[in-house]
Design a protein around this nucleic acid. Structure first.
Lengths: 234, 234
DNA sequence: CGTTATGTTGACCTCCTTCAAAGGCTGTGG
DNA sequence: CCACAGCCTTTGAAGGAGGTCAACATAACG
């Protein structure tokens, strides 16, 4: 279990001022002076691919903002299976439940090497009180989580396996060129769509044959957006 | 379309002080004086069974708290079908997206005669700023919506039709005695679980035969919680 | 270069959908 | 009060989509 590919490494105290995703994350509206006051307790972590950031049910002292990479939020089912309920990308927030004093509701695992900022509950609660812009940002993140959850219900859990997969691929993006869009494992695709690994594999294989997607070295190279969109509406 | 069974009737200005669900709704922490100041713009509406409270995509000037009854939040699919993404009961909030300046994300329809309070966006935003207790309540409602959405993914969109239906019935409650628990139409059950009306009907019929549920006059009378829980974990 | 995870494919069978028809409950008007 | 229309529910039969189990292929990895 403790291989070096499942580690969460400390990178340093966050330098929010220099953070390239400042405009995406919670503190985009703060002045430099305000920022300095809160930098101290905020840590910058790197979560290696496949590493677990936190576990469902564990006490939740902090929330996390995603600076780069990709996280999945997973729920374990009573029958041994698992279901992925959210994908978090740059600018998304994980562990907001800490603000209402609840333990983590999911297990967060990195699908790619991922950089996150860990922000203690107290810091966010304080800023939420004192800074209107942080407060606004917080409400927006929360609403965005609801929207993403809705998308999982409407787009990724409704219709045939083909339609769901098409919608998943469109959701993941893979806009033509080289941005490292993740192509999840068949197992994860299954957990995302509520289908089995085998079915996920079959659907992907069929998409390849029909030329709807192109894959090289296990990574997606390009989609046929038109064709996929058509399938998505079945 | 404009029959008298699909109407939203104005009942009066809300008397939050006397409201029997005060402790459930947003303003439970306010003093009487604070309450008086905001009572004016808050209206008390009755939504008749099957009536629409608001439509997806419409401008969202207000949010709503459910005082009694049951609302469904529906999303219309491109292929003509529809999916229910949430059920709102006493104490739940609908239309929170108004606070981040977005149009309504769903169509809200009453499954039972339902009483709601309509609260203008500005009132909530103001109170959110001035009253810590309202602010806390707001965050909690928002988190609760996320939790409910997750439940729809994990419990109502995962596994066999039987398992999903068992989980739906357990979610609906029907705790033994007479509290008017709704027993949704087969069509709504289908839209809730992502299955067809016919399958919903068949599953319910089979549950009746096995004695897992008892129905009289189209309403649920009792569940076999043990048996259903067992099915729910398949 | 063997070992192990991950992806692919086949055969079979179950579950769900689809299409169709019949039965029941409700309301309306004669 | 009864007849009839309309809607929802139930049930049937047939076909298809997806699950299951197993074998095999193909990378990834020490």
């Amino acid at each position: 279990m403790t291989t070096n590919c499942t580690s969460v490494k400390w990178v340093g105290h966050a330098k929010c001022r220099a953070c390239e995703v400042r405009n995406f994350v919670l503190f985009s509206g703060l002045s430099d002076r305000e920022l300095d006051a809160i930098l101290q307790p905020i840590d910058n972590l790197r979560v290696a691919q496949h590493a677990t950031l936190y576990d469902q049910g564990a006490e939740a002292p902090s929330l996390f903002t995603v600076r780069s990479g990709l996280l999945k939020l997973r729920v374990d089912l009573p029958n041994g299976g698992q279901r992925i309920v959210r994908l978090l990308r740059q600018g998304d927030v994980a562990g907001l439940e800490t603000l209402v004093d609840e333990p983590y509701h999911h297990t967060a695992v990195a699908l790619l090497d991922t950089d996150v900022c860990r922000i203690p509950r107290e810091v966010v609660l304080l800023l939420d009180k004192t800074s209107p812009s942080v407060h606004r940002a917080l409400l927006q993140r929360w609403q965005h989580l609801v929207d993403q959850a809705d998308h999982f219900i409407v787009a990724l859990s409704t219709g045939s396996a083909e339609a769901r997969m098409a919608r998943l691929l469109l959701t993941l993006g893979c806009h033509g060129s080289h941005p490292a869009t993740l192509f999840p494992s068949r197992e994860d695709m299954g957990a995302l769509l509520g289908i089995t690994t085998e079915t996920a594999s079959r659907v992907i294989a069929e998409f390849k044959r029909r030329g709807l997607i192109q894959i090289e070295k296990r990574e997606c190279v390009d989609y046929d957006h038109t064709g996929l969109s058509q399938l998505a509406e079945s």
